[in-house]
Design a protein around this nucleic acid. Structure first.
Lengths: 340, 340
DNA sequence: TTGTAGGCGTTATCAT
DNA sequence: ATGATAACGCCTACAA
């Protein structure tokens, strides 16, 4: 009846011994308990509890050829995304979806200024069972790496390279941007500008397209656009440029709240009141929109939801429950505040 | 000379075969190359490159008894931290410090409403070689779990339970808060309130203490304090309460920029101008301080730096390079903007 | 310097 | 239902 601390972690053998069964039976009892007598099962359970046994992941992984972990890839070369509330939501979503799973989340972040080569190599190295790619740019080679490695993966945001085998979850950016712009039209605005996102990302591209489509529908001019980089400063610079080139603009659709916030400041110092002189609509509603002056009317980006779905899709594939073949698109709802 | 794709990853055996050496020699060549002839080394290197060999982590881990991964623990029960730029900086810092290491970062996030039990269990399970604990509350049991498991770990932020064996990196919160408050005194303010952080976290506690100390030094009143939860809303609520209880206040030190921002809004709607009627100082300077109206004077929180240091300290211990025994404290510099 | 042999802790196959 | 036994891929004495 000694209670002395084992210095090394208990092994399956010790559990088996303590339970009075063979190692194989113990193993079965621990994994699902198929073809195990109730008594054996109970004995093993007790032994496990008493010894505080946890299976050795490495050993298990070696034979099952499963690592028990999936990667969350953030190939942002300049670390920008990390400062974005987008990442927080993504992380939370993935984390929650993984909770019941006992799968580990391995975070892969690109170094600043680095191309995604190292990450691609890692992914191909078989270190993870699957991957979720969170934000990525044209030309980062991730798609090819994933296809070459036959690694189960799902993208959050439409990949730059479209291919049958690449599954993704995304916001319906075109429709959302269109809706936002329509809202501006409904408000009686006629000279509607946009601050677009980076054009090497599908988000940037799609939101710009939605804006264009809505203006085309309304028969309005589609020349007033400038692109930012999803940061506050980028938004401010773009706004300034728009103001210079189109001093008569009366509305702005910004592809992110952060950029909208930058725009707000520039408009303010230019003496334009919002929404008096100029209406502004942002995108995301991840915290900053409610905190600006005036609070931003915006589109709610269901990041967390998307991340959860992406993870579940990946899990389905890992469990052999089949794989999604079509993209999954979420709508982004309009949130009315005070900037229109 | 066939170039056909292997469907399974190459093993050490195949590398050895291709290089014309034994498995052990190949192994040595791959791990540091000690006691390997130049020719053998070259042959192995070539084989590795040609085959695209990557050591199987599980197999290696099984024999070395090292997992090759460390955990970043975020035991925030309500997911709040995730929305905070603090996490972004921490992540970046840890990530960078890990770059040259080929150690994996495993992210452990508490589920909402959950106590840290599951995480403690995971840590004790020997799944990681070490841990960095990012933000934690009194009573989350992490300290005990870590001490019991003899797991190398470094806290970012002073742990609630103080113990010799618990090493941590932190901002010198007391000194910083004191400096901020002094600045307010220097500006001629005499009725200086504070919006404190959560008091079950050492940060909250320490910054409050700094504020008290400075006021005591100046012989001023120390009754005007209310605590928030590091969120914008929490800051706003606290500010309102302060205004109700101490309508004559002329300065506020908020323990975070987010809370300061909330305070700013309440002050504004109460018709108090900043910095005309009331001076405000925040804490963190992680993006929001520069974006408020007016821009916040604040204390720069060197999160990324801290995270990097914490990681390096952990790495030192893992490499047997000894362990830090005393806490490492960083100063937080005052950043002058326009709210004082 | 090199190779041989044994073992790390699990799971999986196959008799029993 | 149970229990030997053989991998899984790698590292590391130890012997040559």
């Amino acid at each position: 009846m000694s209670t002395d601390r084992q210095t090394t972690a208990p092994t399956l053998d010790e559990v088996a011994l303590a339970a009075g069964v063979s190692r194989s039976t113990a193993s079965r009892a621990i994994n699902g308990g198929d073809r195990v007598s109730p008594e054996a099962q109970a004995a093993v359970d007790a032994a496990v509890a008493r010894l505080g046994y946890t299976p050795n992941r490495a050993a298990r992984s070696l034979v099952t050829r499963r690592t028990g972990s999936i990667a969350l890839v953030i190939p942002e070369p300049d670390g920008r995304v990390l400062a974005d509330p987008f990442l927080a939501g993504t992380l939370r979503g993935v984390g929650h979806a993984l909770d019941p799973t006992d799968l580990q989340l391995v975070l892969l972040i690109a170094r600043p200024g680095e191309h995604a080569g190292r990450i691609a190599r890692y992914l191909k190295g078989g270190h993870v069972d699957g991957a979720i790619i969170a934000s990525h740019h044209q030309g980062d080679e991730l798609e090819n790496a994933i296809m070459a490695a036959h690694l189960p993966a799902v993208f959050i945001g439409r990949p730059a390279v479209e291919a049958e085998s690449l599954v993704y979850v995304d916001v319906d950016n075109v429709a959302a941007a269109r809706r936002a712009t329509q809202r501006l039209v409904e408000a009686g605005r006629t000279r509607i500008a946009t601050i677009a996102g980076p054009l090497d990302m599908s988000v940037g591209h799609d939101r710009l397209e939605g804006w264009r489509a809505a203006l085309a529908d309304a028969g309005l001019d589609v020349t007033a656009s400038a692109d930012g980089d999803f940061t506050l400063t980028g938004g401010a610079i773009a706004m300034q440029r728009l103001l210079d080139d189109h001093p008569d603009l009366d509305a702005v659709f910004a592809a992110s709240d952060l950029m909208a916030q930058g725009a707000l400041r520039v408009l303010q110092s230019a003496g334009r009141s919002v929404p008096g002189d100029v209406s502004v609509i942002g995108f995301d509603d991840l915290g900053v929109a409610a905190a600006t002056t005036p609070p931003l009317t915006t589109l709610r980006n269901p990041v967390e939801q998307m991340a959860r779905t992406a993870t579940n899709v990946l899990l389905d594939e890992l469990e052999g429950r089949g794989r999604a073949t079509r993209p999954i698109l979420y709508p982004a709802e309009l949130v009315e505040r005070a900037s229109v």
